[in-house]
């Protein structure tokens, strides 16, 4: 993903970097207890550890705009629709703020529900 500064040169931001940003923003979002792997193998959802966060985020780019897919685990008993909505807003806002890149869509996949004590 790139941004052009005609007089200075180009800034290029890798998908990985956007994924990392999105993952961090997601974890701070209320209701989200973790990121999960996109593929559901053997029906087991594992919460990704902090250093593997970006595995729970897919970044797809299309011309100047990008799409983000988030794979998350949400706390039991919260309003999923609302958490997803907040998550989308927050991730859009944070990524835009830090990179200046326009996000076209953010899709949320709830891969699991965790019940706290």
């Amino acid at each position: 993903m790139g941004k052009k500064f005609a007089e200075l040169g180009d800034l290029r931001i890798s998908h990985d970097c956007v994924a990392e940003l999105a993952g961090l923003a997601a974890l701070e979002c209320y209701g989200v207890v973790g990121m999960a792997h996109p593929s559901l193998t053997a029906g087991v959802v594992q919460i990704l550890s902090r250093d593997k966060l970006k595995k729970g985020v897919k970044v797809l780019s299309e011309k100047e705009k990008i799409k983000i897919q988030l794979y998350v685990v949400v706390e039991y008993g919260v309003n999923l629709v609302e958490v997803a909505r907040n998550l989308i807003e927050r991730v859009k806002y944070e990524v835009k703020k830090h990179t200046g890149i326009e996000i076209q869509t953010v899709d949320v996949f709830v891969q699991g529900i965790k019940k706290g004590k």
């Binding site: 979002c29 209320y30 209701g31 008993g77 919260v78 309003n79 958490v83 907040n86």
Partner: peptide, 14 residues
């Protein structure tokens, strides 16, 4: 739970 709106609403619901 049903009425939760926005981030603050979800926190309030919890």
């Amino acid at each position: 739970l049903r009425g939760a709106r926005g981030n603050s609403g979800v926190i309030l619901s919890q």
